[in-house]
């Protein structure tokens, strides 16, 4: 084992991990409030990223485009919830899962209708981020990466604050905790669901834009994050915001460590694509509710 690589791998892991955390945050928001597993999350991420890209292509300022993309997916999330998921309340779990799988397919098709469906694109790096990076632990961290991590952490921090302090955040937690009780004290469960989907859309666009800035935009790559989210949320706990953050960074670090130390042992390498899922299976077998999730107790 070559320990010289370690700091570099850890750092790269934290960078990609914070984006995973941001992507997982949206996923957890939806699961936490409405117990829906969202297979279309990756497609929402891609939609957000491509909206931002299309806007910058038409000459808009990068930051403004990112903001508008977040607003657009905010609306998209709300729309999906209102049109498709609201009808599925009370249906069996498999139906709800399959609706999101179907939606993933629909959004995929719609994205293919745009010129961005196939091919590789990249943002023109905004001037503020194109300078020299900083030196951390002996490894170079580019400004883009730094900004990505900071933005992700800021959003994650903001949402944690929102859940702990604001009335709406506390209402959302109440609904997640016990729908019936929350309804009986007069909260609107529908509004909470809509808001959860909207926030999920918003964070998804943020994750998509940051990822696009760092490693380019491809539909398959961005939508693939929707699958990477599963190891993250299972490790962290499906219904825990803190779990999404910790799980995201842990999975990011683990997959980079795997890429650094296991790739040599496997013909063809590429262990980073599969290692998170092996972790996922192990966690499922030993501790299905994850590090910070609520342990479900079944009563007959």
């Amino acid at each position: 084992m070559n320990l010289d690589l370690l700091p570099q791998l850890l750092l790269a892991g934290v960078v990609i991990g914070s984006i995973y955390a941001l992507a997982a945050l949206g996923f957890v928001l939806i699961y936490k409030s409405s117990r829906v597993i969202n297979f279309a999350h990756g497609q929402v991420i891609a939609t957000g990223a491509f909206i931002a890209f299309a806007l910058t292509q038409s000459g808009m300022n990068f930051w403004l485009a990112g903001l508008l993309a977040m607003l657009a997916t905010f609306a998209l999330g709300m729309l999906i919830e209102r049109v498709f998921l609201r009808r599925m309340v009370g249906e069996p779990i498999i139906s709800v899962i399959m609706v999101t799988i179907g939606l993933a397919s629909v959004v995929d098709g719609l994205l293919h209708l745009t010129p961005y469906g196939a091919g590789n694109f990249s943002f023109t790096t905004p001037a503020a981020l194109s300078g020299a990076g900083i030196d951390l632990l002996g490894t170079q961290l580019s400004r883009v990466q730094l900004a990505g991590v900071l933005a992700a952490l800021a959003l994650l921090g903001g949402f944690t604050y929102f859940f702990n302090r604001s009335t709406m955040g506390i209402t959302m937690r109440a609904v997640a905790d016990d729908q019936m009780a929350a309804m009986s004290v007069g909260t609107s469960v529908e509004r909470v669901f809509a808001l959860a989907w909207a926030f999920a859309g918003l964070t998804a666009a943020a994750a998509g834009v940051i990822l696009g800035l760092m490693s380019g935009l491809t539909l398959t790559g961005l939508a693939g994050i929707g699958l990477k989210v599963f190891p993250v949320v299972i490790l962290g706990g499906l219904d825990s915001v803190l779990g999404a953050i910790v799980g995201g960074i842990l999975i990011g670090v683990l997959e980079n460590l795997a890429a650094g130390y296991l790739d040599g042992l496997v013909p063809g390498g590429g262990t980073r694509d599969v290692f998170p899922f092996i972790v996922l299976l192990i966690v499922l077998l030993l501790r299905p509710y994850g590090l910070f999730g609520t342990k479900e107790i079944e009563r007959v």
Binding site: L103, A104, V106, V107, G109, L111, L113, G117
Partner: peptide, 13 residues
């Protein structure tokens, strides 16, 4: 390649 996933997804939904 756009219509195929779209129609398929719509059928499920």
């Amino acid at each position: 390649s756009a219509l195929r996933p779209f129609s398929f997804g719509m059928a499920i939904v």
